[in-house]
Design a protein around this nucleic acid. Structure first.
Length: 666
RNA sequence: GCGCCUGUAGCUCAGCCCGGAUAGAGCAACGGCCUUCUAAGCCGUCGGCCGGGGGUUCAAAUCCCUCCAGGCGCGCCA
C-alpha cells in the first residue's frame, strides 16, 4: 500500500504543478465503498475544480489518464462526480504484500517515549475502569514499539496518599490490628485463597461509611473524626518509623503486587514503578520548587484568599479563569505540597529536566526474564536508565484534564516549551455501570427511567466491578463454550483456551469504544462472544490455522513449507472477478501499517479493533464462499492458501498490538 | 457562571479532526444454511427528520452560529 501511495502522490504533485500551474496540496486518499469501484480513490479533481473554475469531471479525466501510466496501477477510472478510482495490479500488489512479511521489524530509534498508565491507588482491588486505562496504555505502548519507537512504561504508585491512609485507619481502628495482626491476616487470606486487595475493597468502603456515620463536630473550628484520623495517620506515614508507617508500607506493597498480577492476566507489564514516597525522599519537589521560584512565576501569596500559600500565576487561558484569583496553589499554608506540585516535579524528571534522579531496585521478575524495577531509598548501583523521555504520554481519565493542563502550563512557564508540546494527556472517558447492571447489583443509578443513565463507580463507596471478578466470569463463560465444543480435550487445555478467550474478549471490549465515550458497562455485552467481539476475531484466526493444517496434511508437507508452495501459483485469476472476495481481503490486508499509523496519530485505538474485526469478517466471507481444500484449479488453490497464510500472519501481528491472544483451538 | 465531552436504527456503537459516491457495523427480532476446510460462523429481511433551528458550499452526519437535553470538570482532595 505504502509504495503505491507514495508514487501516486509524487505523480499528482508534479502534474498539478506543471499542467495546472497551481501549488500542489497534499491531497487525501479515500477508499472506495467497495473494491469493485477501485482500490484507491482520489478526490483531487473536486479541489482543483474550485481553484481552476473548471468542471471536476473533466479534470478527473485528465488526472486518470496520467495516473494510468503509474507502474502498479492497472487502470484509472472516473466515477461519481469526479473521483479518480485506481485499480491496482492485483498479482503484483499481492506479491509485494507477501514479501513484506519477510521484512525485519524496524530497530528502535534513539528517541525515547515514556508511557505512564494504570496508576491505581494501592488501597483496594483494581476495577474495570482501571482495565480500560491499562488496556489503552498498553496498546499505545505496543503500537509505538511496532512503529520503531523505544518505549518505557511507568506505573506510578501513590503510596503515601489519603487513600492508603484511609485503608490503614480501617485496619487500625475498625479491625484493631497491629503490624503483626496485619501480617497474619494477609497470611490467613492467602491460605483461604481470598485476595488481599478484594478484602481491602470492602474495608475501605467501611471506613467511608464510618466517616459518614460520625456526627459533624459541634463546635466551629473543631476537627471532624475524619480530619483527625487522617491527619494523624498521614503524619505517621511520613515520619516513616512508626508501626503505622510499617502497616501502610506493607499493605501498599502487597496490593501493588496484586494489581500487577491482575494486569499480567491481560498481558500488561511495566518497566518501572515510580513511587510517590520516593519523589518526596529524593527531594524532587524541593528542586522543582527552586526552579519554579527562580522563574518568578511562583510566589508567596501575602493576602487574600490564598494568603500564606505559594501559588503559580496562570492566565491567558479561559480554562484557568475560574481559579480563585487566577492562581493555583502549589504549597499549602501549612507548608505541605499539593498533588499538582508533586506532579510537576515528576513530569520534569520524566523529561530529564529536573537534574535529579531516583535510586532503583528490582521489584519482581516476570516469567520469561523481564525485570520490573521500582524506585527506592538505597538502590542498586547498576540499573537501566530511566526517565529522560523525548515524548511523554500520560494515560489518565478525562476528569483530570484540568490538572494536566496546569502541569503542562508549568513546563512552559519554566521555559520548557518543547517539553510542554511533547506532554500528551491521553485522556479517555470513565467506565460506569449501566442502569441495568447497577440494578442487578442492587444499586440504583442516578436517573431511573432514562436509558442512557449510568452509575459512576466509586472505590470509596465500594461500588464497582472488580477486574478479577470480570475476568473470572469471562473465563468461566468461555470454559463452558470450549467444553461444549471440545468435550474430549483434557481440562487443562480447555482452561488454557478459555483464559485466552477471556482475555481476548476483555481487551477487545475495552478498545472497541472511542476514548471519549463513556463505557456503560453491562455484563451481557461484556460477556458476549458473538458479533463484534474479541472471540469473533480470534475464531477467524483459529479457523485459518485449521485450514492451513488440513491443506498441509492433504499435500503431505510440513505446515512451514506451505507459504513457499503457495507463492508459486499464478495470481492472474485475481483479475478475473472485479468483486472477488479474495482480492477484497488481500487489498484490506495491505492497510495494516496505515491503520496503526492513523490510530497512533489520532490516539484512537478503537480504529485498530475495528480493523481487526473487518479483516475477520472479510476472511469469513472469503472462506465460506471459496473452498481451499476442494478447489481444483491449481493456481486458485495456491492463491487461496497464500491468502489464508497472509491473513493469519497479519492478524497475529495485529492482535498482538492489542494483546489479544490467539488460542491454539476454539 | 466558565471550560470540556456526548446526542446517528428498538439497544450498543463506527463515520465528524481532513465536507464528496446509495449514512455503516454489532446486538435484538424474523427467515434460511451443518453427510462437503470447526455453526463462537455464513446468507437474507426488517429497522434512520444523523437532537432542533439557521448559515457556508456545486455538495453538510461532517465546517460555522444558535438553542435543547444529558454527563464531567473548575478545592489549601488526589
Amino acid at each position: 500500500m505504502e509504495w503505491i501511495k507514495e508514487e501516486v502522490s509524487r505523480r499528482l504533485s508534479a502534474l498539478v504543478r506543471e499542467r495546472y500551474s497551481v501549488a500542489p496540496e497534499p491531497g487525501g486518499f479515500l477508499f472506495p465503498p467497495s473494491s469493485d469501484l477501485g482500490d484507491l480513490a482520489i478526490p483531487l479533481a473536486f479541489d482543483l475544480a474550485k481553484r481552476l473554475k473548471r468542471p471536476p469531471r473533466q479534470l478527473a479525466m485528465e488526472l486518470a489518464e496520467a495516473l494510468a501510466e503509474v507502474p502498479g496501477i492497472r487502470k484509472a477510472e472516473v466515477a461519481g462526480g469526479g473521483y479518480v478510482n485506481l485499480f491496482f495490479d492485483r498479482p503484483r500488489y499481492t506479491k509485494l504484500l507477501v514479501e513484506s512479511l519477510q521484512a525485519p521489524p524496524a530497530p528502535p530509534t534513539g528517541e525515547k517515549v515514556i508511557v505512564e498508565h494504570t496508576n491505581i491507588n494501592p488501597n483496594k482491588a483494581a476495577h474495570i475502569g482501571h482495565l480500560r486505562n491499562a488496556a489503552l496504555g498498553d496498546t499505545l505502548a505496543r503500537c509505538l514499539r511496532f512503529l520503531g519507537r523505544s518505549v518505557e512504561v511507568q506505573n506510578y504508585i501513590d503510596d503515601t496518599g489519603v487513600q492508603v491512609a484511609d485503608l490503614v485507619i480501617g485496619i487500625t481502628h475498625l479491625e484493631k490490628l497491629d503490624l503483626e495482626g496485619v501480617r497474619s491476616l494477609a497470611a490467613r487470606l492467602e491460605r483461604e485463597g481470598r485476595p488481599l486487595d478484594h478484602y481491602c475493597w470492602d474495608l475501605y468502603a467501611r471506613v467511608s461509611e464510618m466517616y459518614e456515620r460520625t456526627p459533624e463536630p459541634s463546635a466551629p473550628g473543631e476537627k471532624s473524626l475524619k480530619e483527625r484520623l487522617r491527619g494523624e495517620t498521614l503524619r505517621a506515614m511520613e515520619e516513616g518509623t512508626s508501626p503505622v508507617a510499617a502497616i501502610a508500607a506493607f499493605l501498599a506493597e502487597r496490593i501493588v503486587r496484586r494489581h500487577l498480577a491482575t494486569m499480567d492476566r491481560i498481558g500488561v507489564r511495566y518497566d518501572l514503578l515510580p513511587k510517590e514516597s520516593d519523589i518526596l525522599a529524593h527531594r524532587f519537589w524541593e528542586k522543582a520548587f527552586e526552579l519554579l521560584k527562580a522563574s518568578g512565576k511562583v510566589t508567596l501569596s501575602r493576602e487574600g484568599k490564598n494568603a500564606g500559600c505559594w501559588v503559580m500565576e496562570l492566565s491567558g487561558d479561559p480554562q484557568f479563569a475560574n481559579l480563585a484569583e487566577g492562581e493555583k496553589i502549589l504549597v499549602r499554608s501549612n507548608g505541605t505540597v499539593t498533588y499538582v506540585g508533586k506532579d510537576i516535579a515528576y513530569q520534569l524528571w520524566k523529561f530529564g529536566a529536573l537534574g535529579l534522579d531516583f535510586e532503583y531496585q528490582p521489584f519482581l521478575n516476570y516469567p520469561g526474564g523481564k525485570v520490573l524495577w521500582t524506585t527506592c531509598k538505597d538502590g542498586e548501583p547498576s540499573h537501566p536508565p530511566f526517565g529522560g523521555g523525548e515524548t511523554i504520554y500520560n494515560v489518565i481519565d478525562v476528569r483530570q484534564s484540568y490538572l494536566q493542563r496546569i502541569v503542562v502550563e508549568s513546563l512552559r512557564l519554566l521555559g520548557h516549551a518543547r517539553h510542554a508540546e511533547h506532554s500528551i494527556h491521553f485522556s479517555y472517558e470513565m467506565v460506569a455501570l449501566s442502569a441495568g447492571c447497577a440494578a442487578d447489583m442492587g444499586l440504583s443509578s442516578r436517573q431511573e427511567g432514562s436509558s442512557r443513565s449510568v452509575l459512576e463507580m466509586s472505590g470509596r463507596k465500594g461500588i464497582g466491578v472488580k477486574a478479577d471478578d470480570l475476568l473470572d466470569n469471562l473465563a468461566r463463560r468461555a470454559s463452558e463454550e470450549v467444553t461444549a465444543r471440545n468435550p474430549e480435550l483434557p481440562l487443562e487445555t480447555r482452561e488454557a483456551v478459555a483464559r485466552d478467550i477471556a482475555v481476548g474478549a476483555l481487551r477487545y471490549y475495552m478498545l472497541r469504544f472511542t476514548r471519549n465515550k463513556i463505557i456503560a458497562f453491562d455484563f451481557a455485552d461484556a460477556l458476549s462472544f458473538d458479533g463484534e467481539t474479541g472471540p469473533y476475531v480470534q475464531y477467524a484466526v483459529v479457523r485459518s490455522a485449521g485450514i492451513l493444517a488440513k491443506v498441509a496434511a492433504s499435500l503431505g508437507v510440513d505446515a512451514g513449507e506451505l507459504p513457499g508452495w503457495a507463492s508459486q501459483g499464478d495470481l492472474r485469476f485475481l483479475e478475473e472477478d472485479l468483486r472477488s472476495e479474495e482480492w477484497d481481503l488481500f487489498s484490506a490486508l495491505g492497510r495494516q501499517r496505515l491503520t496503526v499509523e492513523q490510530a497512533l496519530g489520532g490516539l484512537e485505538f478503537s480504529a485498530l479493533a475495528k480493523y481487526a474485526f473487518v479483516l475477520a469478517q472479510k476472511f469469513n466471507a472469503f472462506y465460506h464462499r471459496h473452498p481451499v481444500l476442494q478447489e481444483t484449479d491449481p493456481d486458485r488453490r495456491r492463491g487461496r492458501v497464500l491468502l489464508t497464510h497472509l491473513f493469519r500472519r497479519r492478524m497475529i501481528t495485529l492482535l498482538d498490538l492489542m494483546a489479544i491472544p490467539v488460542p491454539p483451538l476454539m
